[in-house]
């Protein structure tokens, strides 16, 4: 699911396309199973901007994750709402993932839910 953006897309456009703006937008894309963003979950492994093309490098918690397509769709949908983004390219990079990749904020959320 995609959380409502806390900043308007116009603001992102005013600042121009930056990696920080992209990461901020990705922080609003949530894991479909837990209320934690894909950034806090440690799935984002890189962001590149080339003109209006945004390239996102992504890994998953498991290669068998049933939500891979859903997460990719949510990323495309959220980033496409940012002014100046013409195309979103997502590359699955197959980096190792384990619980150490979860941010402190993410750990807190999952701890409150009794997941970790």
């Amino acid at each position: 699911m995609i959380a409502d953006g806390s900043e308007g897309d116009g603001m992102a456009e005013e600042r121009g396309l930056t990696v920080e703006a992209i990461i901020s937008a990705l922080s609003e894309v949530y894991d479909p199973e837990y209320p934690i963003s894909i950034v806090d979950l440690g799935l984002i492994r890189g962001v590149e901007i080339d003109g209006g093309v945004v390239r996102v490098k992504l890994t998953f918690t498991s290669l068998g994750c049933p939500c891979t397509e859903l997460i990719c769709d949510d990323i495309r949908a959220r980033l496409s709402r940012i002014g100046g983004v013409k195309r979103v390219e997502i590359e699955e990079v197959f980096d190792r993932w384990d619980a150490s990749a979860i941010s402190r904020k993410g750990r807190e959320v999952l701890r409150n839910l009794g997941v970790i």
Binding site: S62, L63, C65, T68
Partner: peptide
């Protein structure tokens, strides 16, 4: 279930 999901995931990639 977990093993099947991962084996199919490996085939997926």
């Amino acid at each position: 279930a977990a093993l099947a999901q991962e084996e199919l995931g490996h085939a997926r990639v």
